[in-house]
């Protein structure tokens, strides 16, 4: 039993790592294509059919490029920073149920690496640690733009963590559990049971905070190309820079799984349709990340902090109060 469990867990970890590393690569392709179509361009076309092999070309380039460590950087921290981003993104995935449980060759598989009973808290905490990557990279780089990016990273982190925590508190009070499986079962009754109908405010707040968490466009201020070059990534090259990218895209995918699981019914009753539904919802939220990037301008750091502290946090607190009164 013990050995079987161990082998199963290791296999799950490897599958999650491989699938989402590959998806992160494909995510860059989707992003370029979606952005291109929204801006009336073609996007990558030359490598493979419809430019599909562009991902492989990028991979070859990143892997074979020389790994430059500039002279004045703090080398150990500089080297470890990209690993922090990528590793924490995948560690957070340990508590996400990607699919309902299914039986294959008479063996029941739970597609979740570790079903801990505080899933959502763990996921948000570990994803938050992911912002240490840009922070450390920026501070160790000995580059002024990188340092500005690190300072912004710290400000963003402190601002959005409050909103995520408070917005998620109201649904947690309703469900009475922190496990994503319990969240899913609470909403398993069908379309009418989704938490979004009872907690629309929390849903919108959490969605906004998700953009800050993943550092996507309206809040892409830690690596704004037109202000601070590539921010924390300015001094990086080769696969170390690639690891930042993998971490960012993996985080986007995991966030796109977590939002439907929390608010939009997850995989429902666990049928095949429910599983496909979860994948469809995930695809929509991932697409929305790209859509926003094409359609919206970036905000300034002070605007983000103003939004988080003076607008979103009071709304979240009020939402908790109202929920508590209704629940009583």
């Amino acid at each position: 039993m013990e050995t079987a469990y161990l082998i199963e867990t290791v296999i799950k970890i490897v599958v999650v790592l491989l699938v989402f590393s590959a998806l992160a690569g494909l995510g860059t392709y989707f992003e370029r294509k979606v952005l291109a179509f929204m801006q009336r361009r073609l996007g990558p076309m030359n490598v493979g059919p419809y430019g599909l092999l562009q991902v492989a070309a990028d991979g070859v380039k990143l892997f074979t490029k020389e790994d430059v460590i500039p002279q004045n950087v703090v080398a150990p921290i500089f080297k470890i920073a990209p690993v922090v981003t990528a590793a924490t993104a995948f560690m957070a995935a340990a508590a996400i149920p990607f699919l309902p449980q299914f039986t294959i060759f008479g063996y029941t598989v739970h597609p979740i690496v570790a079903d801990i009973n505080i899933g959502i808290l763990y996921i948000l905490g570990v994803m938050g640690v992911g912002l240490y990557g840009p922070l450390l990279g920026g501070m160790a780089s000995a580059n002024k733009f990188s340092l500005i990016s690190a300072a912004r990273g710290a400000a963003v982190f402190i601002s959005y963590e409050v909103v995520t925590g408070l917005s998620i508190l109201a649904p947690i009070m309703m469900v009475g559990s922190l496990s994503l499986i319990d969240f899913n079962n609470y909403q398993a009754g069908g379309f009418g049971d989704w938490i979004i109908w009872t907690q629309p405010v929390a849903f919108v707040l959490f969605w906004i905070a998700a953009f800050a968490e993943t550092g996507r466009t309206p809040f892409h201020l830690i690596a704004n190309d037109h202000e601070i070059i590539d921010g924390f990534g300015t001094e990086y090259s080769g696969m170390r820079w690639g690891l930042f990218f993998i971490g960012e895209y993996a985080n986007m995918f995991f966030m796109s799984f977590v939002i439907p699981l929390l608010f939009l019914g997850g995989f429902g009753d666990g049928s095949l349709l429910g599983a496909l539904g979860l994948l469809g919802k995930m695809a929509f939220f991932f697409f929305f990340f790209l859509w926003t990037r094409a359609a919206w301008p970036d905000v300034r750091p002070d605007q983000l902090m103003w939004l988080c502290w003076k607008v979103l946090m009071p709304i979240a607190v009020l939402n908790i109060l109202v929920t508590a009164i209704v629940l009583m």
């Binding site: 808290l121 763990y122 948000l124 905490g125 570990v126 938050g128 640690v129 912002l131 240490y132 922070l135 710290a154 982190f157 402190i158 963590e161 925590g165």
Partner: peptide
């Protein structure tokens, strides 16, 4: 994790 990652960030 949540508390101390935020505190050390400050």
């Amino acid at each position: 994790i949540v508390v101390y990652s935020g505190a050390v960030m400050a």
